[in-house]
Design a binder for these strands. Structure first.
Lengths: 196, 196
DNA sequence: ACCCTATCGGGACGCTGTTACGAAACGGGT
DNA sequence: ACCCGTTTCGTAACAGCGTCCCGATAGGGT
């Protein structure tokens, strides 16, 4: 009976797509609701009826980001050697982060001031790293890694990769390093440090 | 001949102190020029004549933060064993970060939207990690670490610590971990991975 | 043709960083 | 003693932000 809905699923994906573009092209500063709404030829109200708030919109981007992360990591082929597999996952992690560096900033540094992921998004984030957990658990069971709780080694590997990527994206590092090579060596050394 | 200056060095430190407090107590969101100026009983103009802009103010906080970092790391006693020293520096790094967690967010994640450190501040940031570079270089020279460029191992250790602290502060980690112990073990494993 | 109602867009509110401009406050010249 | 010139500072305006309210809208049922 009322006027037809235009704030529908189609508009939702258009908003998300454009928000991704804005974020990737010009960073978190440029992601304003007014601009976003204007670019998609709607009003800011659309964001509120579809996402609840700006943090709600960012939460959707966050979830999308971790979903891509999930797919990317899950598609990494296994070698059977635990250290080698950790290295492969680490390289895929970096590739994925560099491919969407602004989104990575939203996911791991609080680039959007008011935003914090809701519980569902946080679970999605953790589950994206399941491949790493699997590889580490398998490595421990096979006797390749030290006999400590899986999380300890998995978090260590994750943090090593995350720290390297984070420093690289922040451009905090000395410029003259061949970072790609150093990255792989570092991931490998870290994993080797956990050998039995 | 003109009216006496009140935007002087004393006001500068009062502004910085209060800005630190606001940042530590309520986070980057609460650090607004109007509020800051009101709290110190001056006007926003003061920030502009003393720091040039809000990013300028944050740049000063950033520098202060790395200076404290520098002092903290420089005061860590050396044991002579390279791996042990890396672990000690890592623990001090975490202590310092946890003691000023909001400032850490400004220093390593871009928590204040418009801010990027100027060249001088960036140099200060690098020099704060000199102790780590020294320990690693000494470890390589003594044959404890593999014979690779110093930066490679130093950045690896730094990234491992930074990644762990970053994930801890971001509360991205599974809750049930005894993080303090896991942190030390992880730093040690990473350093051990670089053994010759 | 009319009304009812869910829905949407424009505009208001309070906030932000930044800047332009007029007021203020002093020393020196008349 | 008065006034002026110069420098410095606080106020207010501007553009933009996220958010929310309220009036306009557009369709189906009577």
């Amino acid at each position: 009976m009322p006027r037809p809905k235009t704030h529908d699923e189609a508009l939702r994906v258009r908003l998300l797509d454009r928000a991704s573009e804005l974020l990737a092209a010009e960073g978190a500063r440029a992601l304003s609701l007014r601009r976003l709404a204007a670019d998609v030829q709607t009003s800011t109200t659309a964001v509120y009826s579809l996402f609840g708030s700006k943090p709600g919109l960012v939460n959707a981007l966050y979830s999308e980001g971790f979903q891509r992360f999930d797919e990317r990591l899950r598609s990494v082929p296994r070698s059977g050697d635990a250290v080698e597999d950790v290295v492969r996952l680490g390289l895929a992690y970096r590739d994925s982060a560099l491919a969407h560096r602004r989104l990575y900033a939203v996911m791991f540094t609080s680039a959007v001031p008011g935003f914090e992921p809701d519980e569902q998004a946080s679970k999605l984030a953790m589950s994206a790293l399941q491949p790493l957990w699997d590889v580490v658990a398998h490595g421990i069971a096979a006797g390749a890694f030290a006999d400590v709780p899986t999380e300890v080694i998995a978090v260590s590997c994750w943090a090593c990769a995350h720290g390297l990527v984070s420093l690289e994206l922040n451009e905090t590092l000395p410029r003259e390093i061949d970072f790609c090579r150093a990255y792989e060596r570092s991931i490998r050394a870290n994993a080797n440090g956990w050998r039995r």
